[in-house]
Design a protein around this nucleic acid. Structure first.
Lengths: 201, 201
DNA sequence: AAAAATTAATTGAACGTTCAATCAATAAAA
DNA sequence: TTTTATTGATTGAACGTTCAATTAATTTTT
């Protein structure tokens, strides 16, 4: 058999090239030619490893979702954190430089649009959306009463997504993202101070 | 000469058909054939009235933005409203049944993705985004101190967009939208009660 | 008032382009 | 030698645009 370990290397290589192509041309204008040229490979290789263009696009999106998951675990797992600190880590994970990068922004926005008529992508989107909510709720529960924790989680999830979206679409995302992360953290602090008085154990 | 006043009728007819086609097939799979079939007209007419497919897409998006503007004016202009009531109207305008409809949701999401590589659409997106913020700030200023009003406007804009987005992407948008609108209104109330004490005139 | 002329609206077939998929051929590793 | 990796030319379908021809409303002429 030929080179071992090439398979996973090529797959990652093509996923990176897909992100780069979407970053440069957008998903609409991303073709198997633009991707394979960036990857330094031939166009035929895409069908070989991903069954077709759509398979590579889906794999790229799954890579994005996986990345978000991994970044959060990296920040939460190693240290002993209290609930408030963990909430901060959730926010930071959603505002890493990876999440702020043009390729990621463009891919994420295209993913939302595509998920509207692709059941497979819709499913992935829902899992991701509910994970953010669940992570928030897990921490808020330790600080607030149950019903208040639920509402705080809903509001914070919307605040994270809403701020990220408005920054992503703004004319100067770099500066906006920095301010948004601060605003989001202060919002969470307020939630805790405002509602987390006597009721918590 | 042929029928007069047909021009604006046809234009609206084609824009409606475009929304319907995007609602059914998504923007990616929307062609001049799917649009013209829904409109009951020939494919050539699109280039005649809009210069081409892209022109019709842009006109459809502008129609969406215009709609949002008109709905808000309808709710704010006729009555004498105080600042808190006006904030409620802003929220309602962003959660009308039109904004909740599948064609609008799909078009809006595609618009965000497209605006990333189309300067014309990017400009429209920025105007719309800033209008929401300005409208909120105008009302918050009458209830809160300047610096607090600014932050409240930023948070509320993100809350509206974030809640709308999460509802749009959810597996059961109908129910979610109803809850989201309530949550958003209660968030605004809290903002006013929490910060609007002595400092306001 | 009837006929002719004018003008815009509308059609749909033809054309050229783009693109994803395919596959026969080649290279390279085991 | 066998198996896998990789290439890239080719194919055929899909799509947007164009434009000559047709239709129909309106004005002008007689």
């Amino acid at each position: 058999m030929p080179k071992v370990g090439v398979k996973s290397l090529r797959k990652l290589q093509l996923i990176d090239a897909t992100l780069a192509s979407i970053g440069e041309h957008g998903l609409q204008s991303t073709t198997i030619i633009t991707i394979s040229r960036i990857a330094g490979l031939s166009s035929g290789i895409i069908s070989h490893y991903f069954g077709g263009k759509q398979g590579l696009i889906e794999a790229t999106i799954m890579h994005l979702l996986e990345q978000l998951k991994v970044v959060l675990l990296e920040r939460v797992s190693p240290k002993k954190l209290n609930a408030a600190e963990r909430l901060n880590m959730i926010i930071e994970a959603n505002f890493t430089s990876f999440q702020r990068s043009t390729p990621t922004i463009k891919t994420w926005l295209s993913f939302w649009a595509e998920s509207m008529h692709d059941p497979k992508l819709k499913r992935l989107q829902n899992i991701n959306s509910k994970r953010l909510y669940s992570n928030l709720l897990f921490s808020y529960r330790q600080l607030l009463a149950e019903d208040v924790a639920i509402m705080a989680s809903q509001k914070t999830a919307a605040m994270i997504d809403g701020l990220w979206l408005r920054c992503a679409l703004s004319s100067s995302p770099e500066e906006e993202f920095i301010k948004a992360e601060q605003l989001c953290k202060s919002f969470v602090d307020e939630q805790i101070k405002q509602y987390g008085d006597i009721t918590c154990h």
